[in-house]
């Protein structure tokens, strides 16, 4: 019993949600948001996709990417801290750069952002893998 409306909605929802999550991630330092929340939002989107197309199917489709996300996410978070070590500062010391844009504005780049991206990826990967493990297995394929 599968709703084609749900299928269509899910297919449309995933990219939109991911975009929204990335927005939440980037603005996190100043407004509500951040890597953790963004990660959970993305997970929620993946779950909805999973509910529509079968969790096992979704996780299998994303399997490689998710493992990579876990490794990259955790690695990125540690590396963000190690930048400071390379510079001779205590681990996790953060640096901020302001790249001027044409006009009046500027882009705020920082090592905290790298850290937060690591958090984002790790959260997506671990929650989804866990769900995949518990929901997957010999489930029927769509």
């Amino acid at each position: 019993m599968r709703s084609y409306i749900l299928l269509a909605a899910a297919r449309a929802l995933l990219p939109v949600t991911v975009l929204f999550a990335i927005y939440m991630l980037l603005r996190g330092h100043n407004e509500p948001g951040g890597g953790f929340i963004a990660g959970l939002v993305t997970t929620a989107a993946i779950i909805i996709e999973g509910l529509a197309f079968g969790v096992a199917h979704t996780v299998r489709r994303l399997g490689r990417i998710l493992t990579a996300f876990l490794v990259i996410g955790l690695g990125l978070a540690v590396l963000a801290g190690l930048i400071a070590v390379a510079a001779g500062d205590p681990f996790l010391t953060n640096y901020h750069w302001h790249m001027p844009l044409p006009g009046d504005g500027y882009v705020h780049l920082s090592t905290t952002l790298i850290f937060d991206i690591g958090v984002y990826l790790a959260v997506i990967a671990s929650t989804t893998v866990a769900i995949g493990v518990f929901a997957g297995g010999e489930e029927e394929t769509p």
Binding site: T67, L70, V71, L74, G75, V78, G81, L82, P90, F91
Partner: peptide
């Protein structure tokens, strides 16, 4: 002083690589 964190950082990074 980063040496203090070295045991943890090395093992965390190793774990990531091993994954």
């Amino acid at each position: 002083m980063n040496l203090v964190a070295a045991p943890v950082l090395i093992s965390l990074m190793t774990a990531v690589v091993l994954l």
